[in-house]
Design a protein around this nucleic acid. Structure first.
Length: 499
RNA sequence: GAGAGCGUAGCUCAGCCGGUAGAGCAACUGACUUUUAAUCAGUAGGUCAUGGGUUCGAAUCCCAUCGCUCUCACCA
């Protein structure tokens, strides 16, 4: 709708009004409803662990202080389930054990409020670890109702727009974001274990490059110039490699691409890129295998990971297949026997593929690969020997100059990694970048410029190296059984909505 | 960008061969009191996304707009 509705509308619902009234009463009664200082003696999980062996129907003299959000309330507040990030604890308030002053607060406490409780620990005869409340401290009054307690928030739009409600009420969602953090730190730990140094390179760039994608453009006021959010860190990481700071560098950070949004694409996404001097693309294959295996093991204790109705096995070594071989097997077309672009197009056309009339041999090969092979690559596998035409930063395969030492790792038919033996011949690099630039300009991409600073660094001499990029969000999807990239990004890109 | 589908109470959902809006949870009032989605009785809550049209009558049919989802395209 074009006219924004009054924001007050959401607050005027009964539940919210009642909460506002309760807040006013609380302010009158206890003063500060949002106190700055409160210290718990332990988390709910620590409490559960400490008293794991406490028998049912047993009281202790141990006094503890806990804090958390009220998730449910039974018997008019006599039983309250309090949750902090670590877990749940039951609070018991009864006239025999809880002073009048604390019990007076109970009618003013709503689901979703954050409270602190001090009292003695016991386990009820039903086996529930419980604190007999002696003091109750209001820490935060919630002015909005909690989502339905049994189903949580299931409206997909709400789950993405109000992620706090999603995580608050959906255990699966909470777990997935915990796993995301674990995977991210796992990637860093793995790379450091392999001897890589984490570095940070610019996200704001004056010349964008390192991939083919539309950038986000912005403007620097003081420098008075256009800048771009990076589409890849590649060129800066290579300049770092030239420096000799480390022979193994990596970066985990956001890339930005001004393109389509889908279940597998978010305009900003997390990429891990690394460059390894004196290594080649085959060394990188081993690195990818070790990394995925390590991550799966750290999450599940096994390399077998459920995804939808499939089971993905990340145990290395992965299957390896050269792109021309894969295409030959799938279609019978032997690209290595085809000499010219024209013959390649004719062969593709004869096999029923619609090819553009200016496509090269390599473009035809890659197209047929995507059409016929990509979708079959369910278990983790490496596809090697890419056409040079679509790989401006990779070294030629000795004896077959139309192919390069490049591989992409696939899983569940998605590309999850892209790696090459990095081109370090300055003259060849310049030729290919000029060619790429001309193609970009021909496409109407007029902002694309030649990165002279990068070429200058390559002129200085970059050691032979293997390089790798891993799409971390997709990797997380695979490792956490998430059907959409929005399920693994806390706040995925949304259209603005005024309601 | 194209196609298909969806949008009903704070939340989860019924109702959709057109006859004037319903349940559960949450809320409120009361009862009960060692519960585990507590229970019982009652109350309140909706411009059925928005705007138009067809009709005696529209949540329901049609059109447009907004938002979302999926598929495709672009792209990894």
């Amino acid at each position: 709708m074009s006219e924004p509705k009054n924001q007050q509308a959401t607050l005027s619902s009964d539940a919210a009004e009642v909460r506002a009234q309760k807040l006013a009463i609380l302010r009158e009664k206890i003063g500060d409803v949002y106190p700055a200082h409160f210290h718990r003696t332990m988390t709910n999980a620590e409490l559960a662990e400490k008293y794991e062996g406490l028998e049912p129907d047993t009281e202790t003299a141990d006094e503890v202080t806990v804090a958390g959000r009220v998730y449910s309330s039974r018997n008019s507040g006599m039983f309250i389930d309090l949750r902090d990030a670590s877990g749940k604890i039951q609070i018991f308030s009864h006239k025999d054990t809880t002073p009048e002053e604390a019990r007076e607060l109970l009618p003013l406490i709503d689901l979703g409020d954050i409270i602190g409780v001090t009292g003695k620990v016991r386990r009820t005869k039903r086996g529930e670890l419980t604190i007999n409340a002696e003091t109750i401290t209001m820490l935060t009054k919630s002015l909005l109702p909690m989502p339905e307690k049994w189903h949580g928030v299931s409206d997909i739009e709400l789950r993405y727009r109000k992620r706090h409600l999603d995580i608050m009420t959906n255990e699966e969602s909470k777990l997935r974001f915990l796993q995301r953090s674990k995977i991210l730190s796992g990637v860093r730990r793995f790379m450091e274990g392999e001897g890589f140094l984490e570095v940070e390179t610019p996200m704001l760039q004056t010349i964008y490059g390192g991939a083919t994608a539309d950038p986000f453009k912005t403007f620097h006021n003081t420098l008075k110039m256009d800048m771009y959010l990076r589409i890849a860190p590649e060129l800066y990481l290579k300049r770092t490699l030239v420096s000799g700071l480390s022979d193994k560098v990596f970066e985990v950070n956001r890339n930005f691409r001004n393109e389509g949004v889908s279940t597998r694409h978010n305009p900003e996404f997390t990429m891990m890129e690394c460059y390894w001097a004196y290594a080649d693309y085959e060394d990188i294959m081993g690195l990818v295998e070790r990394m995925l295996e390590t991550l799966a093991l750290s999450l599940y204790g096994t390399t077998e990971v459920a995804f939808g109705d499939k089971v993905l096995n990340f145990k290395g070594p992965f299957k390896r297949v050269a792109m021309p071989d894969a295409v030959k097997e799938a279609t019978g077309i032997d690209f290595l026997a085809i000499k010219t672009d024209e013959e390649a197009r004719a062969a593709a056309k004869a096999a029923g593929f619609e090819v553009e009339k200016d496509w090269t041999w390599g473009e035809c090969l890659a197209f047929i690969f995507e059409e016929k092979v990509e979708g079959t690559l369910i278990q983790p596998s490496h596809v090697t020997h890419f056409p040079k035409d679509i790989s401006p930063f990779a070294k030629e395969v000795p004896g077959e100059p139309r192919l390069v030492e490049r591989f992409e790792s696939y899983c569940n038919a998605w590309e999850i990694a892209n790696a090459f033996s990095e081109l370090n011949d300055p003259e060849e690099q310049r030729r290919r970048m000029v060619e790429q630039l001309e193609q970009a300009h021909a496409r109407g991409e007029k902002d694309k410029q030649l990165d002279d600073e990068f070429l200058d660094a390559i002129d200085q001499g970059m050691p032979p190296a293997g390089g790798l990029g891993v799409g971390i969000d997709r990797l997380i999807m695979l490792l956490t059984n998430a059907p959409s990239i929005r399920d693994v990004i806390l706040f995925p890109a949304r259209r603005n909505k005024v309601d």
